[in-house]
């Protein structure tokens, strides 16, 4: 491409990205808008003369929700990795009988609509008294990530050279030892990739939160936003400020995780 042509392409790409990300910009802009400018026509295109009141409301109202989301996210990560890494090791390296069927079931599990799972969970949790608990939400949210995590881990662990495992075996290490001291350290990048996605999905979950934790103290930030929309239609700056804060994990993921998501590419499972 000639330099002029590629410059033109960059310009077009900038415009396209701008159009695509306009709603995101608008969210940020509205989060700074003063309530009396909120219904102005035409609207303020830039957050000049804005206010931080929206963010003050977030600090005032939403901190408990953010805390819950953080706990649920971290719990989901721990549970997801604990369940899926050993399974993936077996599927990738130990050739278990029935492994193919299990993989098929995991693929199909990804196809089940969340609201249907939520209804089943609701019925079960009601009997077990697990509604409105952080633990219950962690388990439900992990179902979003576990099938995906097994696929990622399996692909990654397949790429570990058999010679490495054979060498450990020759040195007298048992299967468990090999898994813990060889396979897991080598799979660090897959662990990070799985953890990031599991966290983000748990953090973003709305379906399980709204069915299983709609009341009580275990409500996550997605419900914080949802109730904001329902309750105060006037203060959209607060709603959008909460939305901005709730988007931070995604932003961080995009910035720091690109490398790790790229690490997943090596396993052939995820591409940036």
């Amino acid at each position: 491409m000639t330099p002029r042509r590629s410059l033109l392409k960059t310009l077009i790409a900038l415009v396209l990205t701008g159009i695509m990300l306009f709603p995101v910009y608008w969210m940020v802009n509205v989060s700074f808008t003063r309530p009396r400018d909120m219904r102005k026509a035409p609207p303020n295109w830039l957050p000049i003369g804005g206010t931080l009141d929206g963010y003050r409301s977030v600090l005032h109202d939403q901190l408990p929700y953010l805390g819950t989301s953080l706990a649920v996210g971290l719990g989901t990560v721990a549970l997801t990795v604990a369940i899926s890494a050993p399974a993936a090791y077996a599927l990738a390296k130990l050739a278990p009988r029935g492994g193919g069927v299990l993989s098929f079931l995991l693929l199909m599990a990804q196809m089940i609509p969340g609201i249907i799972m939520a209804m089943g969970f609701y019925a079960g949790y009601l009997e077990l008294g697990l509604l409105n608990t952080v633990g219950g939400l962690i388990v439900a949210d992990s179902t979003i990530a576990v099938p995906f995590a097994v696929l990622i881990f399996t692909a990654f662990m397949r790429a570990i050279p058999d010679e490495l495992l054979q060498a450990a075996k020759t040195d007298g290490a048992g299967v468990l030892r090999i898994f813990w001291s060889v396979v897991m350290p080598v799979s660090r990048n897959a662990v990070v990739t799985v953890s990031l996605f599991a966290f983000l999905w748990a953090w973003s979950d709305f379906v399980y939160a709204s069915t299983l934790d709609s009341g009580g103290a275990a409500r996550p930030i997605t419900l914080g936003i949802y109730h904001y929309i329902g309750n105060n239609n006037q203060e959209w700056n607060a709603v959008m400020a909460t939305a901005v804060v709730a988007s931070l994990p995604a932003t961080v993921l995009l910035i720091i995780a690109q490398r790790y998501v790229a690490a997943g590419v090596i396993s052939g499972a995820v591409k940036d």
């Binding site: 960059t10 990300l21 509205v30 949802y226 959008m240 988007s247 995604a250």
Partner: peptide, 30 residues
Amino acid sequence: AFPLSATLRALFLVPWLLPLIVSASTWSWV
């Protein structure tokens, strides 16, 4: 590839990574 193409392509991922409640409430207001 052209200058900035990788960065801009990465930015296109933002709508995909945002929590759905965020996207949905932003669109409601838009």
